[in-house]
Every structure is written in C-alpha cells, then in structure tokens.
Amino acid sequence: MAMVRRSEFLPWLPPMGRKTLFALALAFICFAFAFPVLWLILTSLRPESGVYYVHRGTEFTLGNFAEVLREERIVEAFVNSALIATLATVFSLLVTVSSGYMLSRFTGPASRLWFGTIYVFRCVPYISWVLPLYFVTQSWGIYDTYTGLLLPHVAVHICFFSWLMKGFFDGIDPSMEYAAMIDGCTRWGAFIRVAVPSALPAISALAVLCWLFTWNEFLFALILTGNRVPMITVVMAQFVTEMGLRWNLMAATAVMALVPAFLIALFGQKYVIRGLRI
C-alpha cells in the first residue's frame, strides 16, 4: 500500500512545536468561547459584598441561589418556561413531521404551493406578525395565557421544521413504505409505522432544537404575556432595569436558566450532529 502522508499546517515547524502550537490555539479558542459563561458562574457564587470585585476575594456562597428561589415570580417563570417549551416541542413535531412528509413524498401544484408559502413565511420578520398578534390574542381572549403563548410558538416552527423534515424524508428511501402499502397498510399506516420510525434520529434532533429555541425565546414572551404568565427570559430582562445593580442575583438566575438548556443540549448533542446533515 502506498504511504499516504497527511499534509500538515505550518510544515516548516518541527512536529513538537506544531503540536504545542496547536494545543495552545485550541486552549485559547475554548477559553474565548467558554469565558462569558464561566465568568457568569463565578459572579453567581460571590456574595453581595464581593460582586464588584469578582476577580479578587475568596468568599463564595450559594446564598444567591437561595435568595432567587425565594422569589415566587422567578420560580413561577421557570415552571412556565419549562412547560411551554415542552408542550411547544410536542405540538410542533406533531404538526411539522406530517407537513414535511407531504413535501417530500408528493409533487405537484399543492406541494409546490405549500413549499412557496413556507419559504415566504419563514422570511417574514417575527416583529411583523407578533406585533399585531398582540391585538389578535387580546380580542380572542387568549392574551397572557398559556394558549396564547403556546400556539404562536408552535406556528413559528412550522416553516423551518417542515423544510428540515422534508430534507430528512428525502434521504429515506420510500420503497419500504410502498412495500408496506402492498402488504395492506393504509397510507396513514405506511406513514406512521414505517416512515416516522425511520426518521426518528432527525425527529430527536428537531426536538432538541425546538426545546432550546422556546426556552430561550424572548420577543414572543415579551409581547404576548403580561403579569399572569411570567417567562424566564422576560423576567431576566426586567432584572436589568429593575434590580439594576444586583449583579450577583442576576447571575444566579441566569445560571439556573442555563442548567436545563445545558442538560438538554449535552444529552441531545449526538442526535443533533447526526440529524442535521443538510
């Protein structure tokens, strides 16, 4: 077998030097990416007196977290955000898996029209429909309720996720579904029992993305909720103006908001990387 020599970066350096340089560059990049989060965690562990000098001082405390958890509104916001994110994930997937399947398996005017609609609505800036949605939800009596926040969150994913699901189904050979239908399966049976299970990796990837997106979303929550349904991102943004200088409490809240997202992402990372080949 012929020797295949890998071409390397900076060929004039000796191997040791190249390795060190590479490791240093890696360490620097990781530091740059992780620093803001590390700094936030450090701030959240400092007592009120030490928060302005995070870089010096050695007192650390978990008191900030306890104090934040005593605030009823913040706890309520965490529960609401988790609930809306989970429900929005379930409903978005129910709706977009079938719509993506339709786009992938059928051609013709209906399919082209639906695809065009999705592309156009994907481009519409959120503010252009969420701003008037404020009156719409008020006149339907769902402003500042779970329904009034959940349904727009499901609607926002329709375009992008249908598009991604179409891509996934395009990559799955439809002959299995035809075989199932010849064996007496209905169209629905072929879709639910054959196509959906083979798309599961992609569906898991979308579930992770959808959960993270809804948990992190701000503009919808800001416009479509008032006092009755506090969401965690809105509560934190209000902190900046209302609590002003209490950076230790703000950092503690932000760290707690990061934890669920971090767990979901860590757990779902491999599905996302596997599922996102476009």
Binding site: I29, W39, L40, N216, W247, L258
Partner: peptide, 30 residues
C-alpha cells in the same frame, strides 16, 4: 473541545446579553 465550542448554542440571547453587559460594565466589568 466540540462540547465547549457548542456552549453558546444553549445560551439564551438574553442571558448572553446580560453576561456581556456585566463583562463590559464601565465600573466593575472585567
């Protein structure tokens, strides 16, 4: 390294903005 590089993906934009605001605070920012 891959996991560390993906960290910003899970950070809510609002949280990112709060962090950066704190880091660049004119009196006490690092």
């Amino acid at each position: 390294v891959q996991t560390i590089l993906l960290v910003p993906l899970m950070v809510a934009p609002v949280i990112a903005a709060i962090m950066i605001r704190w880091i660049f605070n004119d009196q006490f920012g690092i």
